[in-house]
């Protein structure tokens, strides 16, 4: 069998199934950040690890078509602005910068705790996309150097 980019068929088949579960677990950790251990940072790292898993198993050329890297750049840059926007909205509606201006809801509910959940999602997006872009840049550096030789 011809050796293709990435790892063997076994790894590819397992990755094809498991990467969705890993992504789902990352989203679960982010959304439940105000209820259980974890939060935006840990969930973002899990999402970045899922993308990294795909990149290791299928090779760099596959991930370039599978993911829109430019869109990841945009999400990464705009989530920093979103954090600031939540803070300024708090200044407008809650009286001070980063005030918790949304209603808190009932304790232990999934949708509760106001801006904490919003900020968790923003940080999760930022960390996930940012870490994967760093890995992608390292891989691209390798490709660039191969071109220059």
């Amino acid at each position: 069998m011809k050796q293709q980019a990435g790892m063997t068929l076994i790894v590819k088949t397992v990755t094809r199934i498991s990467v969705w579960l890993i992504l789902l677990y990352g989203i679960y950790i982010i959304l439940h950040g105000h209820l259980s251990p974890g939060g935006g940072f840990a969930g973002g790292v899990i999402i970045a690890l899922a993308f990294l898993n795909v990149m290791l198993a299928f090779g760099r050329d596959f991930i370039k078509n599978w993911l829109n890297i430019e869109m990841l750049h945009d999400i990464d840059s705009s989530s920093a602005m979103m954090f600031l926007a939540v803070g300024i909205l708090g200044m407008a509606f809650g009286g001070s910068f980063l005030a918790n201006f949304i209603s808190h809801g009932t304790l232990f509910n999934l949708v509760s705790s106001g801006t904490i959940q919003v900020l968790n999602i923003v940080i999760g997006l930022k960390v996930g996309m940012g870490l994967f872009i760093v890995v992608w840049a390292l891989a691209l550096f390798h490709l660039d150097r191969k071109e220059m030789k």
Binding site: H34, G39, G105, F108, S113, G114, I116
Partner: peptide, 21 residues
């Protein structure tokens, strides 16, 4: 005060949100 059951999230995203920023 924050409505968050996880106290760590309450501290880093409400009481000390400047730090997280």
């Amino acid at each position: 005060e924050t409505g968050s059951a996880n106290i760590v999230s309450a501290v880093i995203l409400d009481y000390r949100a400047y730090d997280t920023l």
